[in-house]
């Protein structure tokens, strides 16, 4: 991943800075992991180790938390993460077709990352925009009222 800081020194200092910002408390773990993920694109093992070291907490717990929440990823992800909601309101209005079109357009299955490292395709929990179902979220941006024809147009913005 090219967004990763090049040297270990920068990883250490980045995480130290993030932990300092939130406070050296286990209670801040989610907020810290959120920022670490923003900095590195995902939660690499050495970053989790640094977090554990800075918070003086068991690495196992940090990893247990990192793998519990769907917004965190301990695997490298693409530059843009596309999260597709397929809960009932979206399902009723054609989420499955959107998934098929996305998979086809990107050439990857759900959970996959394109070989160019540009996109990762994932499920998401309900985005809370069911009034405009079906919906997807790309990074922090939500798109609603989607039809299969919208997908290539939207993807084009990120390519």
């Amino acid at each position: 991943m090219d967004v990763m800081p090049a040297s270990l020194d920068s990883l250490e200092s980045t995480i130290k800075e993030i932990v300092a910002r939130h406070g050296r408390s286990e209670h801040e773990l989610l907020a810290i992991l959120d920022d670490v993920q923003r900095a590195f694109g995902y939660l690499p093992e050495n970053a989790l180790i640094e977090v554990a070291r800075n918070l003086d907490m068991p690495l196992g717990k940090v990893y247990g938390v990192a793998t519990f929440y769907t917004l965190f990823s301990v695997e490298p992800v693409g530059e843009h993460v596309i999260r597709v909601c397929e809960n009932a309101p979206c399902h009723l209005l054609g989420a499955d077709t959107l998934i098929d079109v996305l998979s086809q357009e990107l050439g990857i299955p759900m959970g996959g990352t394109t070989s160019c490292g540009k996109f990762t395709l994932k499920h998401t929990s309900c985005l809370g925009v069911c009034g405009v179902a079906p919906a997807i979220m790309i990074d922090d941006e939500v798109y609603g009222n989607l039809t299969p024809d919208d997908i290539p147009v939207i993807l084009e913005k990120y390519r």
């Binding site: 773990l29 917004l71 998401t124």
Partner: peptide, 20 residues
């Protein structure tokens, strides 16, 4: 950080304390 179950109040508290 993405967990439906955190709507349950004790799970929410666990999460606020930095846990699963």
């Amino acid at each position: 950080a993405g967990a439906y179950v955190c709507g349950e109040e004790t799970a929410l508290i666990e999460s606020m304390e930095g846990g699963r």
